[in-house]
């Protein structure tokens, strides 16, 4: 008998007659905050993770000044990053399948996101045109993430409502980012930046 049929048979034997379990979903599915309060909550939670958060009118200028402040000279971007976000003064490298070593040579990366969850301070990247491949926002040491005002939801289930179709219909890979990479493995002292980007800058559009 194959391992597959044997395991399925063992499972079937083990659960024969097990009663069905009704699942009560009485947790919060929609939040009660208005857009300003949601953004304020998102900022508070992200700052708690030691991310930099700014509300900006001019995204392009804001990215340019982050690049200056963080000494970025080569900036990776997903090919679908809107032209009006691309700053001058730095070398922009479009990711048309950069190798891991080429990604490692970048000083930073700019991406958009699909949804941001205020209550947990989470940015969700769903491999859209302005978000790019998973590796792009992982290897460079600085990640600048642009969040649109209408992308901010209050609760985790509200984010899942927006993401379900992308996974079910398009099988998009998702990355949830809540602050910079961190470890607390040595005597529980928190250290930012182990393998992912050590600095996370979030720019929220009005």
């Amino acid at each position: 008998m194959s391992a597959r049929s044997e395991i399925l048979q063992r499972v079937g034997d083990a659960i024969r007659g097990a009663p069905a379990e009704p699942v009560a979903r009485e947790y919060r599915r929609t939040g009660g905050l208005d857009a300003d309060a949601r953004i304020e909550l998102l900022r508070d939670r992200l700052v708690d993770y030691r991310a930099d958060v700014h509300e900006v009118d001019d995204v392009q200028a804001a990215i340019a000044s982050v690049c200056v402040a963080q000494h970025v000279s080569t900036l990776g971007v997903p090919p679908g990053l809107p032209g009006e976000w691309r700053p001058g003064g730095v070398e922009i490298v479009d990711d048309h399948g950069l190798s891991p070593r080429e990604l490692d040579a970048l000083d930073g990366v700019v991406t958009g996101c699909t949804v941001a969850i205020a209550e947990t301070g989470t940015l969700v990247l769903a491999a859209g045109p302005a978000e790019g491949r998973r590796a792009l926002s992982l290897v460079p040491d600085l990640h600048v993430c642009i969040v649109g005002r209408d992308q901010v939801v209050e609760l985790v289930p509200e984010a899942f409502d927006r993401l379900g179709e992308l996974v079910r219909e398009e099988r998009r890979p998702l990355t949830f980012v809540s602050g910079p990479s961190a470890t607390s493995d040595i005597e529980l002292s928190r250290v930012e930046g182990v393998h992912g980007p050590r600095r996370l800058v979030v720019l929220v559009q009005p």
């Binding site: 989470t122 998973r134 809540s178 990479s181 992912g196």
Partner: peptide, 9 residues
Amino acid sequence: RMNPYTSLW
């Protein structure tokens, strides 16, 4: 409130 990275593929 949330761990730094969650990946779904």
